[in-house]
Design a protein around this nucleic acid. Sequence first.
DNA 1: GAGTGGTCTAGACCACTGT
DNA 2: CAGTGGTCTAGACCACTCC
Lengths: 262, 262
Amino acid sequence: MAVAYERIADTLRQSIRAGQLRPGDRLPSEAKLAEEFQRSVPTVRDALRVLRDEGLIEKQHGRGNFVRRPRTTAVRTNLRHQWEKSRARGPVAERARTGATEHDTGLQVGDLVFHASYREIVADENLSEAFALPAGTPLLERSYRTRHTAESAPFSLVTSYLVHGLIAANPDLLDETKEPWPGGSQSQLYTVGIELDRIEERVTARPPTPEEAAELELPPGTSVLVLRKTSIDIKERVVGVSDVILPGDRTEILFTTPLERW
Amino acid sequence: MAVAYERIADTLRQSIRAGQLRPGDRLPSEAKLAEEFQRSVPTVRDALRVLRDEGLIEKQHGRGNFVRRPRTTAVRTNLRHQWEKSRARGPVAERARTGATEHDTGLQVGDLVFHASYREIVADENLSEAFALPAGTPLLERSYRTRHTAESAPFSLVTSYLVHGLIAANPDLLDETKEPWPGGSQSQLYTVGIELDRIEERVTARPPTPEEAAELELPPGTSVLVLRKTSIDIKERVVGVSDVILPGDRTEILFTTPLERW
DNA sequence: GAGTGGTCTAGACCACTGT
DNA sequence: CAGTGGTCTAGACCACTCC
């Protein structure tokens, strides 16, 4: 190994992988490591940054560097879509009892705190392409933040778009104070006569923007899952688009693909 | 903004977002930026590292720092599973003509270079849980690397596991020189009488290990998509597990969920 | 060879944590 | 308060790119 900071990182990485340093353990202080490896403190810090970027350690200002514990993950499954559709026409009481997120996570309604805000916009190039409608088409933009009661950071950032012209028939749908709507968006769409045929979800991963990192309280060096959900109705129209940002180290997305019998 | 390197990063980030610095543009040299902002070069480098971690710029040794272009993405869709199942019993000639990856990407068979290696192992704790079988159960581990002819880095790292006892009836399935098998693994499983009922795919994101970063030629600061695919047969047995590592900045996973009619 | 980023030093001072 | 990591300086020398 040519460079000093990589040699130091390799040595520490091996200690972690071999279990000599266990999750939660504190590493020797940066000054101690510098002395041990006969290098300057900034060089040791370069090595520690490598390990932090790999998600192996966590830096805590004033306390030390710690071996990271694997995160517990929240699950989001695509079975939620059929579940939501089946209930969309059901009685309000049943719809209000629990939502799709509670269905995925096994939590109760009271365990989640929910915030929504609405805004009327027009389609830019990106959304125009997603909806297959001309740029400038009026849309309703809805922003959602959902978090566990016990935690300060939301576990997802959702920005959802609906075609204004398709939903204006029900003024309640334009009113953010009616949120959370019992039964979710498929129930909302049902009130204006829209039935979904299928849902397409595109998943990629990238580093968070500083804004996303702050809102999700992401430690440096973690990534976000980006999910774009497209709702297509039985007339083959794109009636809804949602962008969902999920913390990569806390989230698992589960997709089940049923296969036809031979 | 309290700290110097964040102020510098913010200024440059805004220039990029506003389009004053466009994709492909070279930033001023680190020495120039240091002079411009009245800070030392290492401080400027701290700022540039922030932007690199956000995926906004790319460092090129000896050339400069460049605004990054958004990557073109390869798509992987779950429609491939039904497509593969439908062909699994078809004539060899048709199966050999094109595979699931070509189906997803729209490429020809000759555009892809394929490498496989087999190894016989026993289930560790992780795999034992995934298969719902006792630890120590004999498995066949298969490693695949697939890349475009024109590129040096593979676009996925696949490690796939099959239950040895279920496939040993066909010795060809234990022979890596028979790869690539026309029609893929569902066709392989068909030769030992296994039919799949469904496929479950779990997706998370995390920073790459150094080994993954090297093999996929990932620039620092990018993440990988981790996909665990579980194949369940019509007798509700887990008959296959695959771990797929995909470069987060080059890959899009598309899942379609069909919904039943009201 | 000129210009660029990559690595590294040997300190300084500040901010945070826990006693 | 002592100990920790966070920020920053003002250089040095090396490795790479391009002319």
